[in-house]
Design a protein around this nucleic acid. Sequence first.
DNA 1: CACGATCATGAGTTTCTTTCACAATGCATA
DNA 2: TATGCATTGTGAAAGAAACTCATGATCGTG
Lengths: 302, 302
Amino acid sequence: MHIEIRHLRTIKAIHDTGGLARAADMLNITQSALSHQIKGIEEQAQVELFVRRSKPLKLSAAGMKLLAAAESILPQMAELEAEFSGLLSGRAGRLFIAIECHACFEWLLPVLEQFRKAWPEVDVDIRLGLSFDAMNALRREEVDLVISSDPDDEADIEFTPLFDYEPVFVASSANVLAQKEVIEAEDFRGQTLITYPVDRSRLDIYKLLLSPARVEPAAIRQVELTAVVLMLVASNRGVAVLPDWVVREVRRSSDFITRRITSSGLTRRMFAATRDDEKTRPYMAHFIRLARQEAVKLQRGA
Amino acid sequence: MHIEIRHLRTIKAIHDTGGLARAADMLNITQSALSHQIKGIEEQAQVELFVRRSKPLKLSAAGMKLLAAAESILPQMAELEAEFSGLLSGRAGRLFIAIECHACFEWLLPVLEQFRKAWPEVDVDIRLGLSFDAMNALRREEVDLVISSDPDDEADIEFTPLFDYEPVFVASSANVLAQKEVIEAEDFRGQTLITYPVDRSRLDIYKLLLSPARVEPAAIRQVELTAVVLMLVASNRGVAVLPDWVVREVRRSSDFITRRITSSGLTRRMFAATRDDEKTRPYMAHFIRLARQEAVKLQRGA
DNA sequence: CACGATCATGAGTTTCTTTCACAATGCATA
DNA sequence: TATGCATTGTGAAAGAAACTCATGATCGTG
């Protein structure tokens, strides 16, 4: 069979206006076209759509079914069009975020919460599990924004700075290193280092300190969740290096000590990576603005 | 915008098969046609439906929405087709019944109940409120079958006999007429007659007895429901004439008396009126058969 | 870097849809 | 019952859309 949306519109128009001529008028075609159209469906489907006995053309049983289908389908099409026009106008869209940085979850959630309210038509999600290949996922449009601290300077991907942070050393107050004012690379030799389960090339502490100094900790333990990292640290099963905004929350607890790494401290910058043709989208820009604001709040909380 | 069912099928096929060429194969058109088709929609709707960056053509955000619409709409179309093919094959259809005869409700319901089980795809309904013009409603295809005891012998309408019945006199045992063995026309003069609210030309008792004898009851009271008629009769607020199958149920009660009208009794025949081009439909024929069976059961219950 | 697989494009053909003009029909009313 | 008005149906031809064919462009991969 060969029924098309056009035919649904036709049936509905005829039913609504109660006549071919008026329906034709509504649809901006001739009455003749409608007559042909109906004839077409009726021949195709081998059903009578209308009762012709009486003049003001009335729907038959089959016609009723077609009409019912139309009543259900046409609104769906209208909705689809609305969604498309939303996409077009920039009100709607998709913002799937990949986070390379495990600890970012903490500040990302409140940002997303605000964002969601401001852009109800934008489809929001956080995609974990592809942090190993986030940039390619971005390029392949599997995600639309990557939170990363490694600007790779690649073509058609743009890195926008969000905020600076400092990787900070955290240990149990019972740890020997609690005695030191400042932590140096050599201090890690005897320690168990707790890290997120990603390649070491993507861990701040390796990149900035351990790899250059060619220092290897006594052991490494990989843990997914920040809360668990902190638990393990508190019970002195290892030490960790976490961004300052995470550490800030535990600084008051007497279970932990936090120390600057090297006398000048480490510094890192967090970026939002987007496809360059999308950075100008209003909701993208807004998201980045929100993210920065949230970062400022975090700093103030210091 | 100009999206058609065809396009929904296309999107779905491409997504399902994961490629233009395979989708084209599935839809029995060329890969080129699909490419053109997609381009068409994208230009129309000003949205990108696919991510072209990577070769195995993947749906974009807008594409996902279109696909979602397709997944919801295509099954509806399939269902519609199934319904049409049901109509075509005679399994499905419509059986809207108008009853000219008020008391018919009692035996009609069990018939319909059986029928519904045998023909699940036939849309069944009883239309009250047009008993005054049932035959025209039948001709105008507002209903498909009329239960009537007045075969009018009209063109393109066919009357099929269902069963014979006897209009019987019912009164309170306290009524003076309880003394009589047989009721005659003259007996009504002093009585309040309780009837259904229809024109007297369509009431058995007028047609067969009172009008020919030019007898008028003392009063007439019109009541919709058979149960109410019986209540009023029981409390001796009037007398009534009802079909034997209705009367049979109250015969045992000591509140009522029932009497034959005239020494030979009255006889009427009930018909099913259908449009003559539909009488041969399997489900119509079956309905009539069921109605007759039910009538036999009623007689046996006597 | 060449190959196979995949998608895009343009011209030409086919198919479908619409229009135009008018015929047929039904309905009301003079 | 004739007459006019309003409605739907029909056939030919114009117009629009969709499809095919042949070929070009692009991508991923061994």
